[in-house]
Write a protein that binds this DNA or RNA. Sequence first.
DNA 1: CGTGTTATTGATAGATCTCAAAGATGGTGG
DNA 2: CCACCATCTTTGAGATCTATCAATAACACG
Lengths: 236, 236
Amino acid sequence: MDPSRERALLSSVDIFADLDERAVEDVLRAAHRRKVAKGETAFRQDEEAGAFYVLTSGRLKVTQVTAEGQQVVVRFIGPGEMFGCVAVFGGRCYPGTATAVEECRMIGFTKGTMQHLMERHARLAINTMSTIGGRLQDTQARLRELSTERVERRIAHALIRLAEQAGRPVASGIVFDFAISRQDVAEMSGTTLHTVSRTLSAWEEQGIVEGGRQKITIREPDALLAIAEDQPRPAR
Amino acid sequence: MDPSRERALLSSVDIFADLDERAVEDVLRAAHRRKVAKGETAFRQDEEAGAFYVLTSGRLKVTQVTAEGQQVVVRFIGPGEMFGCVAVFGGRCYPGTATAVEECRMIGFTKGTMQHLMERHARLAINTMSTIGGRLQDTQARLRELSTERVERRIAHALIRLAEQAGRPVASGIVFDFAISRQDVAEMSGTTLHTVSRTLSAWEEQGIVEGGRQKITIREPDALLAIAEDQPRPAR
DNA sequence: CGTGTTATTGATAGATCTCAAAGATGGTGG
DNA sequence: CCACCATCTTTGAGATCTATCAATAACACG
């Protein structure tokens, strides 16, 4: 990626917003670039946290596995989003695994570099904090959903969240540009792929979504929202 | 509270660690003090986020209510911990309600003050970020538990987490110094007070815990841990 | 000693997981 | 270009957990 485009992208990333000229130079000089092929990982759970990244292209998913081997999808990351951030400031190790869903490019910063940059540019620290704060709120919302809602609503919420974050509107509704399986949805909503499949089938009959292999099209976002919010909705 | 004791407390709070003399002075000058009686709230959900706080004495719990009126306990806060932090940097409004479980004293900082202080003292921003990062990890762990574990294990985890954070070891085990109802435990583990009651009764029969009105004593932390980790444990 | 809150316990219904099997789908190598 | 294979998806039946409903009991407080 050429330097000017990279600079443009960087300033569109929320943590680098409002940085002065000098700070951007500092940041870019300190960064290193990586490319991760589809299916490969940028880092793995429990690995020593060396760096944190900003995704420049592609898409990856962050997952955690339990001691029993069950997997949970923490979040999907798209271009301009950062990942690996918690580990670099909080703990020693990455709490999850980042797997490329498609070919990914990213710029990385080592722990020390980041620490140093932040001490020099307080703005950067404040921005980062704000992003992490947003994620915390997001995670707490999911926690609330998981403890109070039934499966159908949780699945609806999971799809809506995904759509907001990574959905692309087309004529027939909202689609996702990357492969997403029933299993993924299940791991996002705390259920099994069987239940997801059943639920999607039911929704498909009502014309709310359209399924496919590793593909979901949301045909009626409003209907989905109604389910998520548990509002009464018109029978058909 | 006299100034020197306050200063000592402040520097024991992790976000104020490693601050230089001048920074501590700055922070203390900018702070305001509040006292909140038992049962009262420091702030309420959806209220405009004006300030963030560090608890100096007492204990409070942060809760969220869903649109349907169901409550979820986000966390308990003890002396030296900060709360209301996410709202002040992330969103406009407090995402939860902070209720005093017993009489509480706290020092507060307005949004603007905090922003200003952080720009002056990068260390403060980095420390805060690290704490928020820790909470994010914690919340993600709860999310993982909630989506993969059965109720009994979740309750065990909730008690263990509470014990680590606020438990006091005594001869008979670990106790909590503040009132904690079955309902609270239910809202921490995503279940109902009925199920919590049944589970605790079962554990009491096995000698693992000892119940009481708004009171729980953990008699055998190891046994509880075994349940939480789903390890085989000796029958009795 | 009443009164309201909190906790216990039983019975029942329903949601969801688990187990099982078969049906799609798309990629790959011959 | 086609057959085959691995993976993903669908669907059914049964088991199980847990919420819900309901009633009683224990406790603290004024």
